[in-house]
């Protein structure tokens, strides 16, 4: 059975240190002003009774990705392990996928194509973790095959209550947040 790559972000462990952001930029040689992952800090409540959640966010590699649906050339596609990728040579830079993504996870690379998180598939194929996961100093990020009960992501999701972002959009994200 083919794997279903997923990620779990433990919001109780994440301290928003940006190590994942910098590691991603280094690993993927992203130009200035381009981010495939980022830190979201959400504060809720009424002072002094506030709750804060820090999340390391990225493309959710949705099972029903609207970006792939609207792409007119097939540049946006679902690749190995359910990862949503872009073929730069097929991309026209029309931005339809960017407007279709409810998470604003995509951007236009200065080279002219839509760019986004790849789950570092080039590393994963060599048996390594994605750069963001490998760099996390608090082990807040877990990655692996959701179908393998022994994978770090499956264990992390068993241990805590997971949620996904904007579940109401029906995109079935595969980046989970636990608390």
């Amino acid at each position: 059975m083919s794997p279903r790559y997923s990620m779990a972000v433990d919001t109780r462990r994440c301290v928003g240190c940006n190590a994942c952001v910098i590691a991603c930029k280094e690993e993927n040689a992203l130009p200035p002003g381009a981010f495939r992952d980022w830190i979201a800090t959400e504060t809720k409540g009424v002072f002094p009774h506030l709750q804060q959640e820090i999340r390391s966010e990225r493309c959710n590699h949705c099972a029903r990705p609207p970006c792939v649906r609207v792409c007119p050339t097939g540049a946006s596609h679902v690749n190995a392990g359910g990862t949503v990728l872009v073929s730069p040579r097929k991309c026209t830079g029309c931005s339809a996928c960017i407007t279709a993504c409810p998470y604003d996870a995509r951007f236009i690379n200065p080279k002219g194509y839509a760019d986004k998180c790849t789950f570092c598939l080039h590393r994963v194929k060599q048996g390594q973790e994605p750069a963001c996961v490998a760099s996390c100093p608090t082990r807040a990020l877990a990655f692996g095959d959701l179908g393998d009960p022994q994978s770090p992501v499956a264990r992390a999701l068993r241990a805590r209550t997971p949620k996904v972002l904007k579940a109401e959009t029906g995109t079935e994200p595969h980046v989970f947040f636990t608390r």
Binding site: A34, F35, I39, A40, T43, K44, G45, I98, D104, I108
Partner: peptide, 17 residues
């Protein structure tokens, strides 16, 4: 209140599309 703060600043995406 609910306040969401992102440290992302992608061209054409942030602060709004």
């Amino acid at each position: 209140m609910t306040e969401l703060d992102l440290n992302r600043h992608n061209l054409y995406i942030d602060p709004h599309l």
